[in-house]
């Protein structure tokens, strides 16, 4: 059994976008804060911190889920995909990112990282979704700029429809 005292800093190793990285976390440190402040990966955004807005969504252990409702110490040894892993190393955007760009599916960009990660996993599970299915998936994200129509359009384009 693993027990970590409240003020004890535990070494946590995770594989982020294919690369093993480590940092230290006390039990109450959120995974979002661990990614940003320990690992210096600022792509994952922190919004509401109670699971409602969707900005912090990442693919954790194969599931698109909230990184603000996970503690870093829970994630030792897990694989995490974040928005930094989508584009090529030279900055070339992937199909989904290009579709967001071409359809005006982002404005301020705050919600975008989470939506991209949800959409990535969603399209793996459902490669040819209809608009209703896309909107159902998007209901787990709040965007205050675009009004969602362009986002739906971008996801459809990325799915080759």
């Amino acid at each position: 059994m693993l027990r970590i005292k409240p003020d004890q800093k535990q070494r946590v190793t995770v594989t982020v976008n294919g690369k093993a990285v480590s940092g230290y976390a006390e039990p109450r440190m959120l995974l979002t804060d661990f990614l940003r402040h320990e690992l210096g990966m600022y792509g994952t955004h922190v919004g509401c911190e109670h699971g409602v807005c969707g900005a912090c969504t990442a693919i954790i252990d194969g599931a698109a889920t909230r990184s603000c409702l996970r503690y870093a110490v829970q994630c030792d040894g897990l694989e995490i995909q974040t928005v930094e892993g989508l584009a090529d190393a030279d900055g070339t955007l992937n199909t989904l990112q290009k579709a967001f760009n071409e359809n005006g599916a982002l404005q301020c960009g705050f919600c975008t990282a989470g939506i991209l990660m949800s959409s990535t996993k969603f399209l793996q599970e459902n490669p040819k979704p209809n608009d209703d299915e896309i909107r159902d998936m998007l209901s787990g994200h709040i965007c205050r700029c675009t009004g969602y129509t362009q986002i739906v359009r971008a996801i459809r384009q990325a799915s080759g429809q």
């Binding site: 059994m1 027990r3 535990q10 109670h50 110490v73």
Partner: peptide, 17 residues
Amino acid sequence: MKPVAFEYCRPDTVEEA
């Protein structure tokens, strides 16, 4: 929006829990 400090326990069996 951060929790209070707590001890983290991850049991391996129901008995430990």
